[in-house]
Amino acid sequence: MFNASSRAKLGWATLSWLAAASLGVLPASAHHSGGAFDPNKCFVFKGTVRQLAWANPHSWIYLLVPRPDGSTELWGFEIGTIDTLASEGFRPSDFSRGTKVTVAAHANRDPGKHTGSSSRLVLPNGRVIGGAPAGGGQPVSCPNY
């Protein structure tokens, strides 16, 4: 979208707009900076929906993620605001229990916590939430969890 050099050229004011615009159609503020999550620690999780919190300031999706030994782990991922999701045509029913989803997410800085911030979520019908990074960060590789 734009790189570090264009960031310097654009200046903070434009960045402010971009950051705001990335958060919604007419955006609400970033109620937190996302500092809980590590921008350099990204994994791809494949699991089934256990629960959805359709809420502001951020919706969250909870997945049961299978492990190689056959057990499952519960993971929670921050997704968009209600406005962001609704503007892309999503409703809570798109994330009903048992739906298989793939999430690329930045994991919590604390390895003991099973939470992350989704940068790309794919539903079984191919619909996608997210995609390209919304800001100036370079994409990091995301191995399978």
Partner: peptide, 20 residues
């Protein structure tokens, strides 16, 4: 490095969030 994380749908602009 102490402030930047990720928000919702991807990494946000570094300068903005570190400024907070």
């Amino acid at each position: 490095s102490d402030t930047v994380g990720t928000v919702g749908l991807g990494p946000p602009p570094t300068a903005l969030l570190s400024s907070l």
